[in-house]
Design a protein around this nucleic acid. Structure first.
Length: 548
DNA sequence: ATAGTCACGT
């Protein structure tokens, strides 16, 4: 057999291998690979990349090491693949070793290697190393920019990420559908309508208007901004939708207290043959719970494993506990916890705890709080909820003890802040914040608002004294960060503009009451979003139905 | 090579 003929055979064997990998038939692919009489670099690349794509990182690394012992040979693609595997495993040490290997082999500046390195470093927690690789790139490609921007966003540096995007644009970088998806997601976190609208326009202008991922990000953005109708428009215009797109829309309706529509979209999805996943059920069940559609909720919950082959997870149980809890069916909710086919999780106890707090069942609430506290003793949030329950029930002594342990463990409560985006720039307010340039005007506005809503029955709420809280704040909840942000927003926007706030903390009862009335006296729509839920205030009502 | 839904609190 001539050398040429052998190479041809090898070429064909590699193609067959690739075909199996592309079809996701990894077991067959592996068998073919193992039975190959000869393996060249392409064969190794193909099988290893297949393993990484299917999430089998450990196996991929094992195979790579076998190969490395034999040949000590590698080229850029293979390194890129292995760096991707380290990212998947979250192993920065492995990633660093591969990085230095790649440098030794002279492929350290390869564009594929650089981009996967940026991604790997940021996913493994080192944005500094990612930035370092990015800085060293001789030509900053679209993928390179995308990766570093996504990296900053991943680490919570949303503003920095956004300004890097503008840097990319200004330096003539060519933006693609990945860029716009990332930017829209950043805007979602920043609640920045103007930037998002620009990105939306850019997406269409640059010919990526049909991209399913970018459009799904837009659906999510508009619904999280309180513009569910706009979200619906984007969704309806999408030529193709997948399960994530449907989920985003259902979630959108649910978040704004429009459970009926959420259920309708869910049913539409089923009737169109789209298979729901566990996130779909999370969205539709919490929508039912928030809108008081308990019958629907139960039916859907019951249908999960049978009709839809989706096994209920702890979060689905937590949703159902919330659903029961809203109606004050605390014993039934507790029974659901005890009857769950797995060990009750933090979320489930937390849902029960919220129900107990709202319905003032402190006995069961204390049980739930202490369970939480016992399960994750290092987690700040559990101290906060325990603090809340003691505080609401007037147990100031126990509350003080919680604060004490919290201090002993070195866990600190960060001050609450609210964030509002006006005319493309964002403004942050702390409680009682007097650092803003318009402070005087803002405080005047708060005063006049409070006076106005008092005529509609608003009474400032006395709160139990917390060991850590400034006494002025307790007596005067007028200067909570959300009230300041709203006053600022009212001053600086035209009358018909809805306001969108993002908040670091759970909204307090007093602010919740006040904001409801503010929508009455001003005729504005106000959307407040905290880490996990929405309050869509309109006409004196809130989408949460006063339960949160 | 890089992107989108969830993850119950300050």
């Amino acid at each position: 057999m001539t050398n040429n003929g052998f190479e041809q055979d090898q070429y064909i064997r590699n193609r067959v291998l690739l075909m199996h990998v592309k079809c996701g038939m990894m077991l067959d692919a592996r068998r073919l690979f193992d039975e190959m009489p000869e393996k060249n670099l392409v064969s190794w690349n193909t099988i290893v990349a297949g393993l990484v794509d299917s999430g089998d990182y450990v196996e991929a690394v094992g195979l790579f090491l076998t190969m490395w012992e034999e040949f000590s040979e590698g080229e850029s693609r293979l390194f890129a693949t292995m760096i991707r595997a380290s990212a998947g495993l979250g192993l920065i040490s492995l990633g660093k070793q591969l990085h230095s290997c790649a440098l030794k082999m002279g492929v350290g500046e390869d564009i594929f290697v650089s981009c996967t390195l940026i991604d790997m470093y940021s996913k493994c927690g080192s944005i500094e190393d990612a930035q370092f690789v990015f800085d060293d790139m001789p030509d900053k490609t679209t993928v390179g920019w995308n990766s570093i921007i996504a990296g900053y966003a991943l680490h919570g540096y949303s503003e920095e990420a956004l300004s890097m995007y503008y840097e990319m644009r200004d330096s003539g970088g060519k933006m693609d559908h990945f860029t716009f998806s990332i930017v829209v997601r950043i805007c979602t976190r920043l609640a920045s309508l103007e930037h998002a609208k620009q990105a939306h326009a850019g997406l269409i202008r640059n010919g990526f208007g049909l991209d399913i991922v970018a459009n799904t990000a837009l659906v999510d953005f508009y619904s999280k901004w309180g513009r569910v109708e706009d979200a619906r428009h984007v969704f309806d215009d999408m030529p193709k939708k997948n399960v994530i797109s449907w989920n985003a829309l259902i979630q959108g309706y649910g978040n704004h207290g429009r459970g009926q529509e959420a259920v309708e979209v869910f049913e539409q999805m089923i009737s169109r043959g789209m298979a729901p996943n566990h996130v779909t059920f999370l969205a539709v069940l919490s929508a039912c719970s928030r809108s008081g559609l308990s019958e629907h909720g139960w039916e859907i919950f019951q249908s999960m494993s049978g009709d839809h082959k989706v096994k209920p997870r702890p979060m689905h149980f937590a949703c159902m506990i919330e659903l029961l809890g809203r109606e004050g069916l605390l014993d039934e909710a507790f029974a659901l916890i005890r009857g769950a086919p797995f060990k009750p999780t933090v979320n489930m106890w937390a849902a029960l705890l919220t129900a107990c707090r709202v319905h003032e069942n402190f006995e069961l609430g204390k049980l739930a709080a202490e369970k939480l506290y016992g399960m994750e003793p290092e987690k700040l949030s559990n101290y906060i909820v325990l603090l809340n329950i003691y505080n609401s029930s007037g147990n100031t002594k126990e509350a003080a003890e919680v604060v004490h342990t919290l201090r002993k463990k070195g866990l600190t409560m960060r001050p609450a802040c609210t964030w509002i985006d006006i005319n493309r720039s964002s403004h942050v307010f702390l409680s009682g914040d007097k650092s803003h340039a318009q402070t005087e005007e803002i405080f005047q506005k708060v005063e006049s608002l409070m006076a106005k809503i008092s005529r509609h029955g608003y009474v400032p709420q006395e709160r139990h004294l917390l060991p850590d809280v400034d006494e002025r704040e307790v007596r005067f909840p007028f200067h909570h960060s959300e009230k300041l942000a709203i006053a600022f927003g009212l001053i600086n926007t035209p009358e018909w503009t809805p306001l969108q706030l993002v908040q670091s903390h759970r909204i307090c009862n007093d602010c919740h009451n006040a904001i409801k009335l503010i929508t009455v006296v001003t005729g504005r729509e106000i959307v407040v979003r905290d880490g996990s839920r929405f309050h869509h205030f309109v006409g004196g009502k809130c989408s949460c139905g006063d339960y949160w």
